[in-house]
């Protein structure tokens, strides 16, 4: 592989990983172009869409272009940090293509930062904490904990079985809200004005796509920004549908 081909290949690899890990468009562009330059490209132009990364690199008379599919907008900030450090090391210490490729392989295959069970419990804790912040009683917070943890588990199971996001989110919201509303009703409490109900589906808040969408709009990447905000709107809408369905079921049964 020539030096320029390495620059092309490694910058695409970096772009794909940043995109898959929750980097906004400016960050992805920046990291791709910095790696390409550090690997010997004299000029480069990266382009990012919501599902693809592409770059053209130039050195002397040679010019190479390629693209790669990076469709799933995931979240892994530990990967973002690892890539940031790799880019800085490549610029500062002149890493070889082999060294960069080896570190990228390690980053790509890094183990989960937190075990799944711990994340599910922590999301339950988030639900309980939201309920407490909104003024819920200890019983309400306990229900929000249970609803959050079980709802998050439902979402995790459905996503890992490749269900569409609207199925996973609606089902998770339904389960979480049903547990909280059912518990409140059995306890003789009011569902419609309960802080625990307000907290029950907040574990589904699409924080990263919402913030990345805003970042894209503010940096004039309007199309990518709108895609991320549309994704956030779908998630919020589905959570609302799941919550409304659970409330309706409890109202009918009560």
């Amino acid at each position: 592989m020539t030096d320029l081909a390495d620059a092309l290949d490694l910058s695409l690899e970096v772009g794909e990983l940043v995109q898959l890990s929750g980097g906004h468009t400016s960050r992805t562009l920046d990291q791709m172009e910095r790696v390409a330059r550090a690997m010997g490209a004299e000029e480069c132009h990266a382009a990012i869409s919501s599902v693809n990364v592409a770059i053209t690199v130039m050195a002397g008379p040679e010019r190479l272009s390629a693209g790669r599919h990076a469709g799933h907008l995931g979240i892994n900030f530990a990967t973002l940090t690892a890539i940031k450090r790799l880019v800085e090391d490549t610029e500062a210490h002149g890493l070889t293509a082999g060294q960069v490729r080896a570190r990228l392989t390690l980053i790509r295959h890094a183990a989960r930062v937190y075990p799944v069970w711990m994340v599910m419990l922590a999301l339950g804790g988030s639900g309980a904490a939201f309920a407490a912040l909104f003024g819920a009683s200890a019983g309400g917070a306990a229900l929000a904990f249970l609803g959050g943890a079980l709802g998050a588990t439902v979402r995790h199971v459905l996503v890992s079985r490749h269900q569409l996001p609207f199925v996973a989110v609606t089902s998770a919201a339904f389960v979480a809200a049903l547990i909280v509303a059912g518990g409140l009703t059995l306890g003789g409490g009011s569902v419609a004005s309960s802080p625990a109900m307000a907290a029950s589906t907040l574990f589904l808040v699409p924080g990263v796509p919402m913030l990345n969408g805003t970042a894209d709009l503010l940096t004039a990447h309007y199309l990518n920004g709108l895609v991320k905000l549309a994704m956030s709107a779908v998630i919020i809408g589905c959570a609302a549908i799941g919550l409304a369905a659970a409330l309706s079921v409890v109202r009918v049964l009560a």
């Binding site: 892994n76 900030f77 930062v113 937190y114 994340v119 804790g125 639900g127 939201f130 959050g148 990263v208």
Partner: peptide, 17 residues
């Protein structure tokens, strides 16, 4: 309580420990 609320999301975001 905000510290507890943020913990679950930080883990979902896979922030370094």
């Amino acid at each position: 309580w905000a510290a507890v609320a943020v913990l679950g999301f930080a883990m979902v975001f896979s922030v370094p420990r």
